[in-house]
Each structure stands twice: as structure tokens, then as C-alpha cells.
Design a protein around this nucleic acid. Structure first.
Lengths: 235, 235
DNA sequence: CAGTGGTCTAGACCACAAA
DNA sequence: TTGTGGTCTAGACCACTGA
């Protein structure tokens, strides 16, 4: 239930929703903190905490001596970035889908412990899946997530859009990610998954994603069918 | 004067300094918020603001029910997104070099006309070269540049660092670039250049670079030995 | 000038971690 | 159970903005 959430989170969610619903438009000035605190029936400090989180997310903008305004919405790109498979596929006019090969909780390997900054007593959620564009296999990926990070979420919430779930339901702020890209020849297993011949060129992407406080929350290793996929980047 | 700074900023600075001075070491638990607020002679809310900013900077780590700890420092500043081959190689502790295979002026192909936004009466400067790290071949690349853009520069100015020459000598401001990355199998020619076997996995990078006024000034197609090179990105 | 966000106080109760 | 950080209150004064 949402009723156990802190008040300032609930206020945060409501104001955010009101902006999304168009009640407040870009550039609008919100009522003053004193007015809002009265409206919501909380102290000004609590109301300020809600405004604070919204400001950190870039949704609101505070101006000393003037007021609090709805900020112009910036690139939603930051949320998904260069590696959201679904968005890339959709932007090319195809339909993304995926098949989950494995989904289980286990202990972290040494590289997972290092990348996710975990101790060996922690558990991770591990997922393996094949991703498709219009039913053509494009990518095989293995994702590892600290189990503590997704405890309480449904499998669907985790597999469909982890980023969105963490931000909207988990109130975690997504930060940067570091990635490395290289090429290699397909193993027999990968060739089978991606409908390739063994030895065909494959693009390997390793990605560690972090929250805004620098806590790593996802380590993904992907192999893309080289001839069927391109990464596009802008700098 | 520091005296006009908010109290919580001054407390922030002092705690940060004490950590830098080694009074608190990584993993140490700080006194509780209640103790610290008494020590500094402020309310707990004010003290919490100081702790808050330090936590956001990753200097401190809070643990509910346990205490506040000095976080392990994770610096590793963002390696800027520049896909400068020389910089990447140097950052990995190797020595970059290159061998020019071809360097000539010609008419643009249709894809070059499109990417560089040229008409067919314009000329381009075309360069082919192999790039090395510590004398190991890493990459074969073909670069196309509108000839008007580099008229008057020496061959050395163009091949050594085109970006620097354009900015310093040409007074052109470099802007964004768009890139695509995919994987393919090495052709016989590429295999020869990069000391690979035909069919080995190769990373292909296509890059169009623009000035700040959106004028394209370089179109580069590179093929990297897949097993010898990785791209690192930060988003 | 009046109104705004920024800072600060001195309390309080809660959920959680560790002993 | 004790102590911790997390949340929350009902005030207060400040520096700044804009009319």
C-alpha cells in the first residue's frame, strides 16, 4: 500500500502527477510553500522536502524571492540512454519483444561482487533473455541486480522496465552508467540463441548502471547479432 | 568571509576537512547526529542538512538504525566522451601511432555528399590509415573531409590533430558528433591490414562530426580489431 | 514594500539494526 | 532493548525579488 510511504513522497507523487496531467504547465508558478503546506495539511519543512525531491529531478525550479516554477522538461533520453533496447527498436519502427531464458536468485560471482559493489553474503537477481525486433533475434543478455534493490517488486515490474520501476515506484534516482563495447566471434551457444553461424561477428556490450548516489544497481552483459544491430550515439 | 555562509555549509566543510585530514578514516562510524548536533551547537535538523550534502557527494554513507560512515572514495572522473583514438590509447598506458596508407583529393561519393552535406562540384580530402597501440595494429580508418574546410593547412596539421587545428588555427568551434557502432566479420583486406584472419570479428564505427554551427566537417569509417579494442562510454 | 524561498530551532514519534 | 537515522511539527528570522 502507498499509505505507508512518507508524507513528503506522497506529496511529491501528487504534484508530479498534477504536472503530468497538465494542471500545472511548463513555466507556471506554483503556490508558495506556505500556501501548499496549508493545502496539504503539513508543516512547511515537510512540504519543502517534497519540493526538494522534485527540484532534484529537474521537474521544478526554485527561484529565491520569486517562487517555484515548473521547469521545462528536458530530454527523457537520460532515463533510458543509449542502451534501452526497446526504445531503439521502436524508434526504428519495429516491435520489440523478449523471451526470458532464466530468472533466479543466487549468490554473486566475483566479477558481479566487484561491479555491483556487493559482499558475498548478499544475493543477486539474475536474468537471461533473448531480445527480438519483429521476432528476429537481436541480442542475448545477462542482467544481474542486487536483490535488495528489487525486493518487493513483481517480476513484471522488473523485466518490463526496471528503470521506470525504480524511479516511479522505488523512488530511486537513476544516475550515470559506464559501458564498454567490443566485438568477438559468436560461440556455439550464442549462435544458437541468435540464429547465427558459430564464428559470426557479435557486438558485446558490458554495462554497469548507477543511481544518482553512485550505488550500482545493474550489471548487464549483452551480445548483439553484429549484422542486425547498430548503436547510435550522439556526443 | 566564511562567516556569512549558512551554518550547515560550514559544518559540511569542517567534516569534509576532518576526513581529508585523516581524523575520520574510510569505514569509520561518525558520532550520531544527536551527538554531532550538540558538538556543533546546532539543532539536529541543521546538522542533518550538513550530513545530507556530504552523503549526496558520496563522502558519507548513512545506514538506518546503524550510523553514519565514511564512504570508500570512488573517484574515477568521467573519461570524456571523446572518441579520440590517441587519447584512449594513451589513457590505457600505451603509445599511439599511425601509418598513412592514402592521402588524396577527389570528388565525393554519394554517401559522402550526403553525410558531409556537399554538392558534387565540391572536393574532399580523403585519408586512409592504420592506427597502432604500441605497434600493434588496432584500427583501419577512412576519413573524408570537405577540402574547403582544410585548404591552407599542412598535411601534418590535418593528420596529427584535425580538431585542434580547426579550433586553434581555423577558429572553428567543434560541436557534436553522431556515431553508429556495429560488428562484422573481417574482409580479406581488413584482415591483412589488422593482422587478423579473414572472418574474425571486427568493430565498425561510423562517425560524422559537426562544428557548433551544425556544419559537418568529417566523416570517418573505422574498423577495429574486435579482440584488441574496447570502447568505453559514460552516459 | 510585501511575498518568496533559504535557513534554523527544539522538540517529537517512527522503523530499523545490532546487541 | 537501546541507539540509530528517517520523518515531521509549528514556529522563527534572514536575504532576495518584484511591484
Amino acid at each position: 500500500m502507498t499509505s505507508k510511504l512518507p508524507v513528503y513522497i506522497k506529496i511529491h507523487d501528487q504534484i508530479k502527477k498534477e504536472i503530468e496531467d497538465g494542471i500545472w504547465k511548463v513555466g507556471d508558478r506554483l503556490p508558495s510553500e506556505r500556501e501548499l503546506s496549508e493545502t496539504f495539511g503539513v508543516s512547511r519543512m515537510t512540504l519543502r522536502q517534497a519540493i526538494q525531491t522534485l527540484a532534484e529531478e529537474g521537474i521544478l525550479e526554485r527561484k529565491i524571492g520569486s517562487g517555484t516554477y515548473v521547469a521545462r522538461q528536458k530530454v527523457k533520453e537520460t532515463m533510458t540512454g543509449t542502451t534501452s533496447f526497446s526504445d531503439i527498436v521502436r524508434s526504428q519502427g519495429s516491435q520489440p519483444s523478449s523471451q526470458t531464458i532464466a530468472y533466479f536468485i543466487t549468490s554473486p560471482s566475483s566479477s558481479e561482487m566487484e561491479k555491483l559493489e556487493l559482499t558475498k553474503d548478499k544475493k543477486i537477481l539474475k536474468m537471461e533473455r533473448i531480445r527480438y525486433a519483429d521476432d528476429v533475434p537481436i541480442c542475448f543478455e545477462v542482467a544481474s541486480i542486487p536483490y535488495d534493490m528489487v525486493k518487493g517488486f513483481t517480476k513484471d515490474e522488473i523485466t518490463t522496465s526496471l528503470y521506470q520501476t525504480l524511479e516511479n515506484n522505488g523512488h530511486r534516482m537513476i544516475g550515470k552508467s559506464s559501458q564498454s563495447i567490443s566485438a568477438l566471434s559468436a560461440s556455439e551457444t550464442i549462435a544458437h540463441y541468435l540464429d547465427l553461424k558459430k564464428g559470426d561477428a557479435v557486438l558485446r556490450l558490458r554495462q554497469v548502471s548507477y543511481l544518482q548516489d553512485k550505488t550500482p544497481f545493474e550489471y548487464v552483459r549483452s551480445q548483439y547479432a553484429g549484422e542486425r544491430f547498430e548503436f547510435y550515439l550522439e556526443k
